[in-house]
Design a protein around this nucleic acid. Structure first.
Lengths: 353, 353
DNA sequence: GACGGCTGGGCGAACGTTCCCTGTCCGCGC
DNA sequence: GCGCGGACAGGGAACGTTCGCCCAGCCGTC
């Protein structure tokens, strides 16, 4: 429990170069007027001693830490993990530290994550936890002067958000299926209640409506976000509506589960049933058959959110901004025309690999 | 650029409750002898004012920040991302903050990541970046008194490491194939030079040797860590050795690529060629056919590493410890006996799903 | 009734910075 | 010869804590 050997401070450097520590500070920050001779001497001493400035002390007087907090949900989620990478990279590029906390699936974040960040006096907070959407206490406990950007919708206080154009995502995926000639299009949705799910669902409905096609409640099945959800959800959907010839999955992992489930019951994809996903995970390119999906630029979303946050921190803060990032259809082999119809389901894909 | 509205400090709380700020400090830390009356008054004032202690200031005098640094490689890597989750969870459980930095694939980490952590005076550092294995400057620039734990082998200075039993992983995967009756077992390795790759390769060789089976150089092909690597590596391997009837892939993603490549050239799995992976990714359960793999407990490794690091930080530090975590075979449908042989390749799997 | 110990509380210093202001010295112009 | 301004350096305070020590009372004891 002994304190570690003390670090070298400006005073040590000052002592070694025979000046006051204030002058040393000046030199090390590039400011003030100091003669070249002493400047050189100080720099030399600092390097000899291996001086490393103490950001804690600096933060104390500057009232800013050059550190931002990131409260994340489950980062096994590939999308979130990409966004995290983007955010981290941008923070690093601008010389900011990143304090990371995640919150348990059922946890509120208000109890631990937020206090922990506040105590450490982060300059701003990036929220990347879907489950915080519901937390009404959140906007309450949040210091209103602290810059916050979220990747999810936040109830109450109007915080800036950056997210994908999820309605468009739902729309183009469904549109793609309809264009292939499908008339009975089922949907396996994400987690009920999330903005993400609502938006994608909105896009799905819009596409159906536009095509003058039935949009029945029994075509909708909640399946969550993972493979297991698709594995369980698809049979439920098919039992209710054996006539579906195409399924739009809100999440690629669910689509993977759906593919597996279809194979298990002897349905061929895409001959008997088309499947389209959403998220644009890398792994979607390697399913059997390769999955048609909508690419969501998670990395860029994370980076953009961090960029916005740091802009707010720096002061020029259009707080309450809502940034929407465009998405792209990636048509692959999991979608085709329904049984007994000619033509291809391939829509106007702008990118595929 | 205005400074944000000032935070409330112990002095504010003290003023409101009519005592000195030192007494306030005592109360807030639970220490010292203070009468119940004043204690209550102070607590009330603190809560009224919404006092949040300033860990920066506390760190300054305590000489410890209750924050650890984590230098990660690419966290799109599912394994690393799991370890990160484990480490974060454990740090949080013990009330430590986690400062996250990643380093670019070619970056050295010595230039940015380390200085950034040192300036912020982290209490310890967790290294989770395979590319740092080569960095000889690292052990040089690292403060020798700073606790460090790595998930990878680190050249030079003997730092504590926590990692999976990768030799065993390579061994049981290969053993499983041999036991199924295969005699020509190819291997798609991970990144050349990494300890991870060397260990798995060692296990592979050991199994072959033990079974008295050929271990030729032309059975070995470097394929990296991702799907694309497997996609490209498998044809190269097969071109050289068309007689391989089973392939061990150092990484599940490579195995996914191998499966896809095999299908593309019309080979059936496992009838014409068995494929075994390694890492135990969730997605391995959903390939076609489901992938036999070796489960590596990434989450637990991350958590264990953090536990060890915090133990070192707290003082009881068996520095230089090497923790090895066991792995488990998960037999699935991608492995079977070679063409023209009866029997099953299923080995003694202790877990499958 | 003097003294010792305990209890409640305050004072001063320190941690490592930055910022603002005050000196000192010099050369120069009037 | 005197003041003046610029270049250079240092002093003091502040940021928000914790810690060690001291001081004032009060009680009990011999």
């Amino acid at each position: 429990m002994r304190r570690p050997t003390r670090h070298v401070s400006v005073k040590d450097v000052a002592a070694r170069s025979g000046v006051s520590f204030q002058t040393t500070s000046k030199v090390l920050n590039g400011g003030g007027s100091v003669s070249d001779a002493t400047r050189a001497r100080i720099l030399q001493a600092a390097s000899d001693l291996g001086y490393v400035p103490n950001l804690q002390a600096r933060s104390l007087v500057m009232q800013r830490t050059r550190t931002v907090g990131l409260i994340a949900g489950d980062f096994s989620d590939p999308g979130l993990s990409r966004s995290l990478a983007g955010a981290e990279q941008e923070a690093r590029r601008q010389g900011y530290g990143l304090l990371l906390t995640s919150i348990e699936p059922e946890g509120s974040g208000t109890e631990y994550a937020l206090p922990a960040m506040m105590e450490r006096r982060v300059d701003g907070i990036l929220l990347a936890a879907p489950q915080m959407e519901e937390d009404t206490a959140l906007s309450h406990v949040l210091d209103p002067t602290l810059p916050v950007v979220s990747l999810n919708h936040i109830a109450g206080r109007s915080v800036s958000t950056v997210c994908a154009d999820d309605e468009q995502a739902g729309y183009i995926a469904t549109h793609h299926l309809l264009q292939g000639g499908h008339r009975v299009v089922g949907v396996l949705t994400g987690i009920r209640g999330l903005r993400l799910t609502q938006s994608r669902q909105l896009g799905y409905r819009k596409a159906l409506e536009e095509a003058g096609v039935e949009s029945a409640n029994d075509l909708v099945e909640e399946a969550g976000t993972d493979v297991a959800g698709g594995l369980a959800g698809l049979p439920r959907l098919l039992e209710r509506r054996p006539d579906v010839s195409a399924v739009f999955c809100h999440h690629d992992l669910v689509a993977v589960g759906a593919l597996t489930a279809l194979r298990a019951i002897g349905k061929r994809v895409p001959e008997d049933c088309s499947v389209a996903g959403c998220d644009g995970l890398d792994s979607a390119a390697y399913t059997t058959p390769p999955l048609t999906t909508v690419h969501v630029p998670f990395y860029e979303i994370g980076a953009e959110a961090m960029r916005l946050l740091l802009k707010m921190v720096a002061g020029g803060s259009p707080t309450g901004a809502k940034v929407v990032v465009p998405v792209q259809l990636i048509a692959r082999a999991s979608t085709a025309s329904p049984p007994g119809r000619g033509g291809s389901a391939r829509g106007p894909a702008r990118r595929a690999r």
